[in-house]
């Protein structure tokens, strides 16, 4: 703090001289650059540089064991276009991401609204819904692996209410569904808390005024709640969309991409190709594809934000 105060003072003094070089915008700019510099340097070093290297690798045929590394131009991208698995992988990825995002956001918002009611014990339930967030991911998936067995806990519970559960991780549809649910239950608490925080920030007067105007519950939700919490919706949906395309450890533990290719999402396929099959060049090309997809989706959300998000004009 001392140093920054000093900087401020220097800047102020400089600014009060006869011919002010340090105008307010210039001072601001300097401060701005200083404040973002750690993040910027970090990005250059730990994001952009590695990313550049990945693009570079994607133009090579790299055999780690034989220590060969040779330029092959667009061969890895040609392979990507011709890869017979690509269709299945991309469909699986889309199904997985859409399912996960929709389930996560609706559940998070529903829970937040439920827990935002004046009801005794909401603190207790809030803790319960949030608790999986705190359990280590590896531990969480190991436990679910047991619970989802044919004779596991989930079917045991279903049996209590007289339902004979399927063999969750062995059916193509149920496996995909299982991975989505396991992931949502693990992380929905975070989004729930963010929504809850946003909901509590909505001024009560708005609802009261709307009620006087005779607006029903749904109208109040659509006209007041959603616009008011829209920045949080933007934030959570970006985080969730990006996160859904990066789900890896759960799939590795629960299904290893199967049965068939049903749960082989792009990031898992990339991992398989690069690390298990040791096609590092091809894996790099897949990385570039994944990066482009995530970037396009995020950019789209970011572009659309002006249409519906408050505080963004």
């Amino acid at each position: 703090m001392a140093a920054t105060d000093l900087l401020d003072r220097v800047a102020v003094r400089a600014a009060t001289r006869a011919r002010p070089f340090w105008t307010i915008p210039r001072r601001d700019a300097l401060v701005g650059y200083l404040l973002i510099s750690p993040q910027l340097v970090g990005s250059a070093l730990f994001v952009l540089l590695p990313l550049g290297l990945v693009v570079y690798y994607s133009l090579q045929e790299w055999n780690v064991l034989a220590s060969t590394f040779e330029y092959v131009g667009g061969a890895n991208y040609a392979k990507l276009l011709a890869d017979p698995n690509m269709g299945q992988v991309l469909t699986g990825t889309a199904l997985f991401s859409v399912g996960l995002v929709v389930l996560n956001l609706t559940l998070a918002l529903s829970l937040a609204i439920l827990l935002n009611q004046r009801l005794a014990g909401t603190t207790f339930f809030r803790t319960l819904f949030f608790s999986p967030v705190l359990v280590s991911l590896v531990a969480w998936t190991i436990v679910w692996q047991f619970l989802l067995q044919q004779d596991g806990g989930v079917n045991g519970l279903l049996g209590v209410v007289g339902v004979e559960g399927p063999n969750w991780l062995r059916g193509e549809t149920t496996a995909l569904l299982s991975v989505i649910v396991v992931q949502v239950v693990k992380n929905v608490g975070l989004n729930m808390v963010l929504f809850l925080a946003a909901l509590q920030g909505v001024p009560r007067q708005l609802y009261e005024a709307a009620q006087l105007d005779g607006a029903g519950a749904w109208t109040r939700f659509a006209r007041i709640t959603v616009p008011q919490i829209s920045p949080t919706i933007l934030l959570t949906s970006i985080i969730t969309v990006v996160g859904s395309l990066q789900v890896f450890a759960q799939i590795a533990v629960l299904t290893q991409g199967g049965p068939g290719m049903s749960t082989t999402v792009l990031v898992y396929y990339l991992y398989q190709q690069a690390f298990q099959f040791r096609h590092l060049g091809y894996g790099a090309a897949l990385s570039v594809l994944l990066f482009l997809i995530v970037a396009a989706l995020t950019l789209l959300q970011w572009r659309l934000r002006r249409k519906w998000v408050f505080h963004e004009s």
Binding site: Q256, G257, G258, P259, G260, M261, T264, Q272, Q276, F277, R278, H279
Partner: peptide
């Protein structure tokens, strides 16, 4: 590794 995965998926 690739053979094992491919055959695994096909054997499912």
């Amino acid at each position: 590794a690739e053979l094992a995965q491919t055959a695994r998926a096909a054997l499912d």
